[in-house]
Simulated scan of single mutants.
Amino acid sequence: MSDTEKGFTAPTLLVQDFRQTMGGKLTDLFFLQNDNGVLAAITNYGARLVGLWVPDKNGDLRDVVIGFGQVQGFAEGEDTYFGATVGRYANRIAHGKFELNGQEYTLATNNGPNHLHGGDTGFSRVVWEAEQPDAQTLTLTYTSAHLEEGYPGELKVTVRYTLTNQDELKIDYTATTDRPTVVNLTNHAYFNLNGEGSGAILNHKLQINADKYNPVDSSLIPTGTESVAGTPFDFREATTIGARIKDQNQQLKFGQGYDHNYVLNGGKGEDLKKAATVVGNESGIVMEVFTQEPGLQFYSGNFMDGSHTLKSGAKDDFRTAFCLETQHFPDSPNQPAFPSTVLKPGQTYNTTTVHKFSAK
């Protein structure tokens, strides 16, 4: 990857650093580029977004997604989920158990007492089949076997990344199953709109279109639904991420910051709705998130600890990135009041999320 026309030097990503054989399949690196020069890098290892270069207020490209410069970084050690497609069930399932049609299923407890992001391997540590029909589209497919990670049903999953000429990164998810199962897919990109390695994200301004959120217990399992009014979780008006993050609030203590699902206004529907808007305080980069999903997990990078070196050479220091994961609610299989995540044979799981970029 060479310097861009506008003078910003992108970190060098070499395709050969992403080509390895894992589980008998070849990992690789793919680039998408639109007519405006916006660039996305994606690997089929975990169907991960590796980097995303968008123009700032001066027209210079900045990489707003953190990630590694080689596939081994994603494969080694505990999964950071940087940029990953997570499933079969994104977020947590209490005690790694759920019941479906009178039968109990047992999953890995890989996050304290709970199941997180699909288990020990999930979708983030497998090699997906990749097809790139044009310069702006990448289609990734994976078939999850019956009882893989404990989930019932053979699940055939497709994730399609599209980089539009409106400077949108569009992610379309589809899935079908041969037995009743539960499905909740998302992308776990970590964003810093000032650019990877630019420091903490606490001065980013965030607005979330949600009147309610899901408070959690000490293991981060939802305990119900409550209003955001009068709490540090009220982002209905644009507010800096760091404005209230140190408030004496039990929910912030449980999450060690923000790590909660927001109940988006409008619920789940066929139409895309705006879930959130974020503005980078230094770059002027604006990211709008649109989704068909009913929920949005806002995570403020509370467990980032500087133990990884990113593609820019910077460390993943404390709160130097945030996540906005469009999703169904955590622990829905065990909470009938939440929107259902059950997928049955003959049905198609189909959902779209769009990240739209501009600058001001």
Rank of each mutant, 00 (worst) to 15 (best):
278 V>Y: 05
229 A>S: 08
142 Y>P: 11
202 L>M: 09
27 T>Y: 11
124 S>M: 06
252 L>H: 01
250 Q>A: 15
252 L>G: 03
50 V>M: 12
162 T>V: 09
22 M>G: 10
127 V>K: 00
216 V>N: 08
292 Q>M: 04
241 I>M: 05
61 L>R: 09
24 G>H: 01
106 T>Y: 06
302 N>F: 13
58 N>P: 02
262 Y>V: 01
230 G>Q: 02
264 L>E: 12
303 F>S: 12
262 Y>W: 06
127 V>T: 01
189 A>Q: 10
106 T>P: 04
277 T>F: 08
134 D>P: 13
256 Q>E: 14
158 T>E: 15
50 V>E: 07
60 D>S: 12
110 N>P: 00
122 G>T: 06
42 I>E: 05
50 V>C: 07
116 L>R: 06
156 K>W: 02
104 E>F: 06
44 N>M: 13
219 S>F: 05
174 T>D: 01
270 E>L: 08
179 R>I: 13
175 A>P: 11
240 T>I: 03
54 V>Q: 01
115 H>A: 03
315 K>C: 11
325 E>F: 10
96 G>S: 11
320 T>S: 10
282 E>L: 09
100 L>I: 03
126 V>R: 15
64 V>Q: 06
309 T>P: 04
341 T>E: 06
71 V>N: 00
275 A>H: 02
260 H>F: 05
41 A>G: 02
276 A>V: 12
284 G>C: 01
342 V>K: 02
335 Q>H: 10
204 H>P: 05
211 D>P: 13
345 P>Y: 03
55 P>C: 04
93 I>V: 12
347 Q>F: 10
230 G>S: 00
271 D>L: 04
1 M>G: 13
342 V>L: 09
283 S>H: 02
95 H>N: 14
116 L>K: 07
358 S>Q: 07
275 A>V: 02
278 V>A: 11
265 N>S: 09
41 A>C: 03
326 T>H: 08
127 V>P: 01
29 L>G: 01
68 F>I: 08
280 G>M: 01
146 H>K: 08
10 A>E: 15
128 W>P: 00
96 G>L: 11
18 F>I: 01
126 V>L: 06
244 R>Q: 12
43 T>E: 00
270 E>A: 11
68 F>Q: 13
255 G>I: 15
104 E>W: 08
10 A>K: 13
289 V>S: 13
160 R>V: 15
241 I>R: 09
228 V>K: 14
120 D>E: 13
299 Y>H: 13
111 N>C: 13
262 Y>P: 05
352 T>R: 06
67 G>E: 03
305 D>E: 15
256 Q>N: 14
37 G>Q: 07
196 E>C: 08
291 T>Q: 07
219 S>I: 10
97 K>V: 08
103 Q>L: 08
153 G>C: 02
182 V>H: 08
256 Q>T: 09
166 Q>A: 12
73 G>L: 06
158 T>Y: 04
41 A>T: 00
133 P>W: 08
311 K>D: 05
264 L>V: 07
229 A>V: 10
318 F>H: 15
10 A>D: 07
313 G>S: 02
200 A>K: 13
130 A>T: 00
85 T>W: 04
240 T>N: 14
243 A>S: 11
113 P>A: 04
